[in-house]
Simulated scan of single mutants.
Amino acid sequence: MKRYHGNRIYLRSFHIEDARQCLMLMEQNRDLFQRFVPTREESFYTIEKQKAVILKRQYAMKEDTGYAYGIFLLETDQLIGEINLNRVFREPHQRSTMGYCLDQAHQAQGYATEAVLLLLDIAFTELCLHRIEAGVQPTNIGSIRVLEKAGFKREGLARKNVRINGSWTDHLMFAILAEDGWNA
């Protein structure tokens, strides 16, 4: 299985054996992640559901509609987060939407920025995408910094864009193009 190495982390696609680590990541960060993602059913927090999510991700990769990777520490192989390209659109768009989450114990240490840069390399060089978009809640200052450090440009505000925990939330919209110098 191909790994994409950074300085302190690597990315690789998920396989079924990752289900236990995925479940631990989700359970340990449940309160944090729940502030930023649509409400998850209780069944999401089971091994069976995590295996189903992995199988769905593998299928999306085969169909060229989505790409999901675990963020692993190089030294320990510990799963500390996830990063993905969702809704891949090919001709004439050649674009996708990026999302990520990182274990709270590993935040504010540069891991998310490193993961985003690795994913951009995959997106622009291997997948030949032209544009990557990302939305972030205006209150998520850490994630805004990650996107800006990686070279994303703020494009505007999508009002009441996503329903999270029963409420419509605004998202700042960011994007980066292949020609924007993301790997500089």
Rank of each mutant, 00 (worst) to 15 (best):
E75T: 10
G110D: 10
L120V: 09
A112W: 03
L157D: 07
V116Y: 03
E48T: 08
F174H: 10
Q94N: 09
R154I: 04
R12Y: 04
E82Y: 02
Y45N: 14
F124C: 09
M61Q: 12
G66I: 09
I16H: 10
A52H: 12
T139P: 02
F72K: 05
N84Y: 10
A178I: 07
R145P: 05
F33P: 00
I122R: 04
N183S: 14
N86G: 01
I132R: 00
E48F: 07
E63Y: 11
W168P: 03
I71C: 09
A19Q: 06
I141H: 15
L79D: 07
I122Q: 10
L55R: 09
E126R: 12
Y59V: 10
V53N: 13
L11S: 03
R57W: 15
E133L: 02
Q21H: 12
Y111G: 02
V136I: 14
A52K: 07
S143A: 10
T39C: 05
E179Q: 07
Q58T: 13
Q28V: 09
V116D: 03
I132T: 03
A19T: 03
N140C: 09
N7R: 10
A105L: 10
L127F: 03
S167P: 01
Q78R: 10
E63K: 08
H93L: 14
E75I: 06
I54P: 01
E114G: 01
K62S: 12
L32R: 13
N29W: 09
G99N: 14
L102T: 00
T139N: 13
L102R: 03
E41I: 04
C22S: 06
N165H: 08
D103C: 12
R20K: 10
Q58D: 08
P92V: 05
Y4C: 15
R12H: 05
D31A: 13
